[in-house]
């Protein structure tokens, strides 16, 4: 097992991770992200305060630091007296769930299309890539309004919309990598020993090209979280009473002058989550450039 580990750090992926780890941005981002994640997972489950329970007496309570004496609501409450900390954390849960699943979905879908297209070439490639082009030409928000307007906006349908909008980028990147990879000698060698096309794509090409793309996917999680917030904001995301960043912010804008914390508190959580994800993704991308730049 010890040996396996030694191998891993010598592979391209291992070198990328270890290079990324050396960047302070990566460590800081990872720390903040893990902290937020743990809070989002643990706190709503443990706390006896509800994120959705309306309490008219406790509405518009400012955060504790603003001189509020009610320590049950550290970050204050909204216009209906719901705890902002918990609402933000549940919102973060939803945003992360949707962001991560959407990226995983578009990654898998795009990678399969891209590898098949790049490896098979010819007519298959042309057809798949024209479909990709067509998909790429539709703006995300228009697509979202169309689909979510017709179907009920559930977490699942939001993910479907995001996957539909996002896969072409992955397909394009995977295709170009698979195209150059499929001309390499080891693919020829695999054909010679009689490996089937499926085996060559899954066992030989995919492990070589996907990890670097997956690293970049981290940046996309942040992007998808923003889209999720946008959908919530314009009212086509997950519907109230379930809190999402989008609908909390949308409600809060009405009380911006008197109770600015309703928008600022969830905004800060979203900001911290995005910043940490972006600095992780950024460090990974830089590391990727370092590792590949050193080669050619």
């Amino acid at each position: 097992m010890e040996k396996e580990k030694a191998h891993f750090w010598h592979t391209v992926n291992g070198r990328m991770l270890s290079t990324a780890w050396k960047r302070p941005g990566f460590k800081l981002g990872l720390f903040v992200f893990v902290f937020l994640l743990l809070m989002a997972l643990i706190l709503p489950a443990l706390s006896d305060v509800s994120a959705t329970k309306i309490s008219v007496r406790e509405r518009f309570l400012p955060p504790v630091l603003m001189g509020n004496a009610n320590t049950a609501h550290l970050f204050g409450t909204d216009q209906l007296g719901r705890d902002l900390l918990l609402r933000s954390l549940v919102g973060l849960q939803n945003a992360l769930l949707i962001g991560v699943l959407a990226v995983v979905g578009m990654f898998i879908f795009g990678a399969v299309i891209g590898i098949v297209s790049g490896y098979r070439g010819g007519l298959v490639d042309t057809i798949l890539m024209r479909i990709t082009d067509a998909q790429m030409s539709i703006p995300v928000v228009i697509l979202a309004i169309t689909i979510l307007g017709v179907a009920r906006p559930t977490p699942f349908s939001v993910i479907v919309v995001l996957v539909l909008a996002g896969w072409p980028t992955y397909a394009r990147v995977a295709r170009s990598a698979a195209l150059s990879e499929s001309k390499k000698e080891y693919v020829r060698a695999a054909k010679i020993i009689g490996a089937s096309n499926l085996r060559i794509m899954a066992r030989h090409i995919a492990p070589n090209i996907l990890p670097p793309i997956a690293f970049i996917g981290v940046l996309d999680v942040a992007r998808m979280m923003i889209f999720e917030a946008i959908f919530g904001f314009i009212g086509i995301g997950i519907q109230p009473p379930t809190p999402t960043f989008g609908n909390i912010l949308a409600d809060g804008t009405k009380y911006l002058i008197n109770a600015w914390w309703i928008t600022v508190i969830p905004g800060l959580f979203l900001f911290a989550a995005l910043l940490s994800l972006n600095s992780i993704g950024n460090a990974l991308e830089k590391a990727r450039n370092d590792v590949f730049g050193g080669h050619s």
């Binding site: 592979t11 391209v12 000698e185 080891y186 020829r188 060698a189 695999a190 030989h204 492990p207 070589n208």
Partner: peptide, 9 residues
């Protein structure tokens, strides 16, 4: 080519 004909991973 002994360098490229083996799958690296």
């Amino acid at each position: 080519d002994p360098y490229t004909s083996l799958p690296a991973h």
